[in-house]
Amino acid sequence: MHHYSPLERVLRGVALTAIVIFFMFPIFWIVLMSLQTNETILRSPPSMVFEPTFSNYAAIIAGRLDSNVASMGIEFMNNLMNSIILSVGSVTVALILGVPAAYAFARHKFRGSEDIAFTLLSFRFAPPLLVLLPLTMYFQQIGLADTYLGLIWVYQLICLPLILWIVRGYFEDIPQDIEHAYRIAGHSWFATFRKIALPLAGPGIAAAALLAFIFAWNNFIFALVLASADKQPVTVGALAFVTASGIQYGQIAAAVVLSITPTLALALYAQRYLVEGLSLGAVKG
């Protein structure tokens, strides 16, 4: 353990506080906004004194947006459900495909293995718009446009390389002889993969899955182009609050709070794995 002088300790405290405020303030402010009406949000100068209201949340959950001009239906809860289906579905598929692939890339050097792994990574380099136009045409022809299956498929461009490359690193960190010791005791390679490699790489897999989930959740452009209203996730759905009669800041804020809640809850729950998983030395010899 390091020992810090009092001055160092104070400086560390100040720096940490500044960082926490910097990152937490937007969330704090959006929570405040979600509890106000459009009038109190837009007053100048802004104030933190107001009468809290849950009308924004009520409107979103009920699916009715009442503005001073007209009232219209919004599909936000439906969007939230779509986000969950798409993100969970994509991460699940990416795990099923990516983890065994990562193991293969980590353990077996076959002809072209590095090239294949790099090609998969390169999906992350290309701007999404580059592939979207041809993809839209293909998807319409084969009937995958505007389906969950089609979207989850396209989301693999985001999730699969991420999981593959992170998890591969974890498998490579496991000393191969640990697996050999298990195999020589009379177990097949598949049993070894299941009983030794998977549990040892567990924290890494959890971290990769969480990151992939967040990336999938935050995706905007694929869903904007490929999904119609009833398949849209929250990122696209939030556009509905930009109405003819003005921007509904209160409802947007409430929608944002609702949409970050699942990822935030997941991140808090899995914090231990994340820290353990994203820092090196997950497996100590």
């Binding site: 000393p175 002889d177 640990i178 050999h180 010791a181 298990y182 195999r183 020589i184 005791a185 009379g186 177990h187 097949s188 390679w189 030794i196 549990p199 040892l200 497996v283 100590k284 010899g285």
Partner: peptide
Amino acid sequence: LPPAKRGVAMAFEGYSLYPP
């Protein structure tokens, strides 16, 4: 044959114990 079918036991130079 795969290692599991050979009926051999081995002590590894790198120990290779199961951490959990």
